[in-house]
């Protein structure tokens, strides 16, 4: 049963990721990114990392992808579609980097297979995160709220009509 759900979610995530690369229209690409993020949320829930799952939905799906969509719609980026990138050499530069990345990934997977590290039971749980957030990290947390307040004031100052 677990494996069936894993296959479903992983499949959706992969299809979304591949679709993201193949789409020329940035709007569709952003939407497939959203699909991938949603499928990953499912995987996190299966791993019982509920907090990370919620964060995934709120921050990645809710904030970041929506921000992408806003930018795409505001600037009407469709125009970019027509001019293809002529700098073909970049493609060849990407190849060695891709190989290094895959090599690193395989290396890490092998390390884990040899001596699997047990994940702490505290990681990823709302209670543990909340406890840390309101004790050890209270000051940065509160300071962030001041930072956001200042940012809001700034946005209003710069955007308001005379």
């Amino acid at each position: 049963m677990e494996q069936l759900f894993f296959v479903i979610f992983a499949g959706i995530a992969l299809i979304g990721a591949v679709n993201l690369l193949l789409r020329r229209n940035p709007l569709y690409a952003a939407l497939s990114l959203l699909t991938t993020m949603a499928a990953l949320t499912g995987l996190y829930i299966m791993l019982k990392a509920y907090f990370i799952a919620v964060i995934q939905v709120i921050i990645y799906a809710g904030a970041i992808v929506v921000l992408f969509l806003f930018v795409i719609m505001l600037f009407n980026i469709r125009a970019v579609e027509r001019q293809t990138d002529r700098r073909g050499y970049l493609k060849w530069l990407a190849l060695p980097f891709a190989i290094i990345l895959i090599g690193q990934f395989l290396y890490i997977v092998r390390l884990f297979e040899e001596n699997p590290t047990p994940v702490g039971t505290e990681i990823g749980f709302t209670e543990a995160v909340g406890r840390k957030l309101f004790t050890a990290y209270l000051l940065p947390f509160e300071l962030t709220s001041v930072l956001i307040l200042a940012a809001i004031i700034g946005a209003v100052v710069l955007a308001q009509k005379e």
Partner: peptide, 8 residues
């Protein structure tokens, strides 16, 4: 916090 307010 300092940098952001300075940009504005």
């Amino acid at each position: 916090l300092m940098a952001l307010t300075t940009y504005i």
